[in-house]
Design a protein around this nucleic acid. Structure first.
Length: 172
DNA sequence: CCCTGATTCGC
DNA sequence: GCGAATCAGG
C-alpha cells in the first residue's frame, strides 16, 4: 500500500482525533504498522498533537456505579446522510455488562483483532465479515498454541471422536 | 507484559 | 519517502 491522499487525510484525522499510532494503523487496515504511521506522522510534521497524554491506556471499567441517569438525555437527532460519517470506535471499552450469555467453560473476553494478544485464544467467534466479529480472547497457555484450553480441546480431537459431532455451533 | 511515541538508517 | 528495528519510557 501507499500513502494516497485519502489515506493521508484519514491518517491526519484519526491522529488528530487523539488515537494512538497503533490504533490509527489498525484503522488504516491490516498491513499498516504503527511504525509506518509514526514515520509518516513525523514526515508530515504532525508530531506533537494538541494533547499527547504519555500513556492513555484505556482504563478497565471500574465503576460499581449503579446510578442510572434518570432519563437519558436525548442525543441530538442526526440529520442528513450519516452513513458515511466517521464514527471512531470507542477508545474506552464499554462497561462489560456481563450478561449471563456465554457461561460456558472459558469465561471468554470476546476481543477484536486489535485487542488480540499473542497470549490470547484466537478461536474465531461469529461471522468474520461482520463488524461484530471477535476472537475468543481467553488466556491461552504461554507458547502452547493459538487456543485456550477449551477451544484447543475442540480443535484437536481424535478423528474418530470428531465424526458427526455437532458442527452447528461454530461460534463457540 | 502490555503499551506509548521518537529516532535511526538501509532500502 | 518509507518503515523495521531500535530506543526510551509509562
Amino acid at each position: 500500500m501507499s500513502w494516497t491522499e485519502e489515506r493521508v487525510e484519514l491518517l491526519r484525522r484519526l491522529w488528530n482525533e487523539g488515537l494512538s499510532a497503533s490504533q490509527v494503523a489498525a484503522e488504516l487496515g491490516p498491513g499498516v504498522t504503527r511504525n509506518a504511521v509514526i514515520g509518516k506522522i513525523h514526515r508530515l510534521g504532525l508530531a506533537e498533537r494538541a494533547k499527547a497524554p504519555a500513556s492513555p491506556r484505556p482504563r478497565a471499567a471500574k465503576p460499581p456505579r449503579v446510578q442510572q441517569p434518570a432519563a437519558r438525555t436525548q442525543s441530538a437527532p442526526v440529520m442528513g446522510n450519516v452513513a458515511l460519517a466517521y464514527s471512531p470506535r470507542p477508545v474506552v471499552a464499554i462497561a462489560p455488562q456481563v450478561e449471563e450469555e456465554d457461561v460456558v467453560v472459558p469465561l471468554t473476553a470476546r476481543v477484536t483483532l486489535m485487542e488480540l494478544r499473542e497470549s490470547m485464544c484466537r478461536w474465531p467467534m461469529g461471522d468474520p465479515t461482520a463488524s461484530e466479529f471477535r476472537f475468543c480472547g481467553a488466556k491461552s497457555p504461554i507458547g502452547a498454541g493459538p487456543y485456550c484450553s477449551h477451544h484447543a480441546g475442540i480443535a484437536y480431537q481424535p478423528a474418530q471422536d470428531r465424526r458427526r459431532r455437532d458442527h452447528a455451533r461454530i461460534a463457540r
